[in-house]
């Protein structure tokens, strides 16, 4: 018989076949030789051992695979990990989709120059604590964390889980506000670690149609997004000042009734031939009357914004006078 004709369990099948022959040779009501019983029992013992061992080896393999997947999952955003492991994600190139997403970019203002003055361990502790907290906020709001770029973060809303345009923008802006609020907590924490200079975040958000899918080579691909709104969000982030959240006109159109925003500002951005409209998000809509005071006069190039919970009008006036 050729090797190819035999099944994987041909030895066990031969054993069973022998065992059956022994059984057939035993008369219906006659006596059975002890030796025949012993042969049968030995055959079953071998079969049981084999099955038992293979089952245990298989279980051990499954456990190892689960642990490997668990470690791998830390390098991929939870929604994408879920999509890949459920088998819904076809891991191949050239299968991109056009989807309307809300995109978010953030970084720490002047982080490069600050980090040059830090020791390696301090830099690591600060950056990791920052990314840990921000990632928790991203996950809480259901964002897809695309990547970290040093201290920079790229997140998008609307893929792989699409709800609706308003919901994506709403969650994204809420996430941005929460991140900004978290910074003062982190600044306290870093101060106690010995880093006295307060670090600030700046953020840019845009909404629009992008291509989402796998980009790269067959050996190594990135599940990411490409398109003009991605560039817009990135440019808005770069334009933003410390603690500012700048959003595009499309994003503003979706969330303007829910958040307190500035008047439109015309901005010239690299890579965009036309002037863009950008808005600053101050806070939730109810905070307009409550806590955030904004004094704006475009003609006089005047913009004063302060949180009356943190500083009084007299102090603001004194600061302005000192500047002069």
């Amino acid at each position: 018989m050729n090797v190819g004709d035999k099944g994987l369990f041909w030895k066990e099948e031969e054993l069973l076949s022998e065992a059956k022959k022994i059984l057939e040779a035993i008369p219906e009501k006659g006596k059975v030789e002890r030796q025949k019983y012993a042969q049968l029992a030995s055959a079953y013992e071998i079969l049981l051992k084999q099955t038992s061992k293979l089952t245990r080896l298989s279980d051990a393999d499954e456990k190892r695979l689960n642990n490997l997947l668990s470690r791998l999952s830390r390098y991929v955003s939870p929604p994408l990990y879920k999509k890949i492991t459920s088998g819904k994600e076809r891991v191949e190139l050239n299968k991109t989709r056009r989807v309307k997403l809300t995109i978010f970019f953030s970084d720490i203002v002047d982080f490069s120059s600050h980090s040059a003055n830090m020791e390696g361990e301090a830099l690591s502790a600060i950056l990791n604590s920052y990314l840990e907290e921000m990632t928790n906020i991203i996950n809480a709001w259901g964002g897809t964390l695309d990547k970290y770029i040093g201290d920079g973060i790229l997140v998008f809303f609307g893929d792989p889980d699409f709800t609706d345009d308003f919901n994506h923008a709403f969650r994204c802006v809420n996430m941005a506000l929460e991140m900004r609020n978290k910074m003062s907590e982190l600044q306290d924490k870093w101060f106690k670690l010995g880093y006295s200079y307060p670090l600030h975040i700046r953020m840019g958000i845009a909404t629009g149609y992008v291509s989402v899918g796998n980009f790269g080579s067959s050996e190594r691909m990135d599940y990411t997004i490409i398109g003009s709104p991605v560039n817009l969000a990135s440019r808005l982030q770069a334009l933003a000042l410390a603690d500012q959240i700048l959003i595009s006109h499309d994003t503003w159109g979706l969330i303007k009734d829910h958040f307190f925003c500035s008047e439109a500002r015309k901005v010239k951005l690299k890579g965009f031939s036309k002037t863009q409209l950008a808005y600053e998000v101050y806070g939730l809509a109810e905070s307009k009357e409550e806590n955030i005071i904004v004094i704006e006069d475009k003609e006089k190039d005047l913009l004063v914004k302060y949180d009356k919970r943190k500083i009084s009008a007299e102090e603001v006036a004194r600061l302005i006078k000192n500047e002069e």
Partner: peptide, 12 residues
């Protein structure tokens, strides 16, 4: 990585 059928052959 060893498939289950390879494991069977290795035990043999």
């Amino acid at each position: 990585f060893i498939s289950t059928s390879s494991k069977k052959m290795l035990t043999d």
